[in-house]
Design a protein around this nucleic acid. Sequence first.
DNA 1: ATAAACAGGACATAATTAGTCTTTTAGAGG
DNA 2: CCTCTAAAAGACTAATTATGTCCTGTTTAT
Lengths: 136, 136
Amino acid sequence: MMELTRKGEYAIRGIVYLAAQPAEQVCLLSDIATAVDVPQTFLAKIFQQFSKIGLVRSYRGTGGGFVLGRAPERITLLEVVEAVEGPIVPNRCVTGEGECSRTSTCNAHPVWVNVQEQVRDILAKVTLKELAGNQD
Amino acid sequence: MMELTRKGEYAIRGIVYLAAQPAEQVCLLSDIATAVDVPQTFLAKIFQQFSKIGLVRSYRGTGGGFVLGRAPERITLLEVVEAVEGPIVPNRCVTGEGECSRTSTCNAHPVWVNVQEQVRDILAKVTLKELAGNQD
DNA sequence: ATAAACAGGACATAATTAGTCTTTTAGAGG
DNA sequence: CCTCTAAAAGACTAATTATGTCCTGTTTAT
């Protein structure tokens, strides 16, 4: 239960690598993919998702590549994970889709809400700066 | 991310139903399945898993069925979930399989350990008694 | 014996994950 | 304006996991 998918793992590796680079350093996708050991085409998809929501900025053409969208201390692990894995929802009944209306009062509901909040809270407190700190 | 599977949901529904019955009341699988709206054959698998670790006791033959293995206040949601979903592990690197040795120091590691602990903690504090309380 | 009920294994199907491949779009430089 | 570079986008494929089903056995009460 609760497993981060490989995509999520790759996403973290990739963006942490970017965060560890000097500010405004444009990185080639191919270089990132090699460095963090992720299939380039797969990482491309992930970075496209990052790009759409501004976690990274992309430049096309010669001299192009990727740069972190904001300062590493202003990007949280929660944002990164939710960008590729979708919202953190331990149980469908938390999304309020009416799934839970089986019994009028589902006693488990508040538990899942609690789990969701705690996890989001933990991930929201970790920034890319911390994750990128003192790497080789 | 972090979704409980349907199996996990069914497991909870099924055992909460049992917990809501009068103590030592033997319940037919077919009745439970109908009551909680889960395919009987699927629920059978789930209850087999419960049975193996003593969360429920099973009786075969005429008059057989299932009974809760312990008092409902002594069975936690964590036990139920882990019984069918396996251990709560947000990331492979938490299991210590050496996956994380890509970089000698994975800064994300302590975060996942923290997530794991918090979630287990929350689920461990909820008992079947609470979940079964005042149901229709 | 025999009928009731769970146990266990093999199987089937659908959904999701994990990628790949091809074409398009954008920018830089000659 | 031509071409080369690099990301964007979409269609496609393969592998894995989730979600069941089915059949055969085993236990037990009557």
